[in-house]
Design a binder for these strands. Structure first.
Lengths: 159, 159
DNA sequence: GTACCTGCAAATCGTTTGCAGGAAA
DNA sequence: TTTCCTGCAAACGATTTGCAGGTAC
């Protein structure tokens, strides 16, 4: 029978390449392994799409196995750090709400947003990437990132 | 010698199709020709790219020939109306600032944003439009609008 | 004259910051 | 022990809203 008493809080979780990369980038930058920082990393590592600071706060509050609350101020600070290190992609869509998601090389995608209910859906398309890459080379900007958002009505809101 | 005394405020200005379309759409919706509404219409009709509410307020304050100030509250209300009528395209990029620009069929474009100085530059590309149109037909959303933003460093900030 | 339009000021809401105690190294 | 991390509360800035007087029609 397994003995969980040594670390009753942290469930055995599988981490991705992104989590590993983020951890070492944070360590290299001199950051410590604080509780909120680890929780945010863990959470973002397991999301299919972008979350706002408020959504992250709520997710952490209701998280199993132990409800670990984190102050919103800490969450904002940590999101800023992660973005500055290039570990997060920022997404602004909707009413001035900023959302973040893990920036993965192998998980690059864009977004569909339902203008009625606000649902955010990720999608990817190779041809779109190729086209954007070509376009990026002939514009008056040294392009480092790009972002595509398709607005419309999702299936729930269409019916 | 021309007599300007009858209407000393309004300079003789050339209006676009968009202005005409917006005017009649507003009239059809039952809106009156209030001073701020007309000023915002006039201003947006002559912009190369998107403006925020604050930028609009300042532009109206410093506008020739007569400095006509408009309260920010009115500007926000009017921008909401125009957006609801589909006359404006909304653009969110940067620190939670929302910008608007006239939605013209024949002036559809996307944006380059310098992440250092915040400069916004419009661009257009036919192949990109074709690709997005194709992609729009195979995603799980009834797509009505789309938006592409390329992030990077402009020539001023690169040097 | 009526109903809409506008400006003002207060209220909201997302986000940022200052500060003091608690935790990682 | 030293320095960073966190929570709390106040500060901030963009946007929204309630209300009273002014204006289009």
């Amino acid at each position: 029978m397994a003995d969980y008493t040594e670390n009753p809080i942290v469930a055995p979780t599988k981490h991705s390449d992104w989590y590993a990369r983020a951890s070492s980038a944070l360590a290299d930058a001199g950051y410590r392994r604080g509780s909120v920082r680890l929780a945010v990393l863990e959470l973002l590592d397991n999301q299919p799409c972008a979350l706002s600071a408020v959504e992250i706060e709520e997710a952490l509050r209701h998280r199993a196995p132990a409800p670990k609350a984190a102050s919103r101020a800490s969450i904002y600070r940590i999101l800023d750090e992660l973005e500055a290190l290039g570990l997060l992609a920022r997404l602004e869509v909707g009413q001035g709400i900023v959302r973040f998601e893990a920036a993965r090389e192998s998980g690059h995608h864009h977004h569909l947003i339902c203008d009625h209910c606000g649902t955010l859906i990720p999608f990817r398309d190779e041809e779109l990437e190729r086209t954007i890459h070509q376009v990026s080379q002939r514009v008056a900007l040294n392009v480092s990132e790009h972002e595509v958002v398709l607005h419309g009505a999702c299936s729930d809101c269409t019916s």
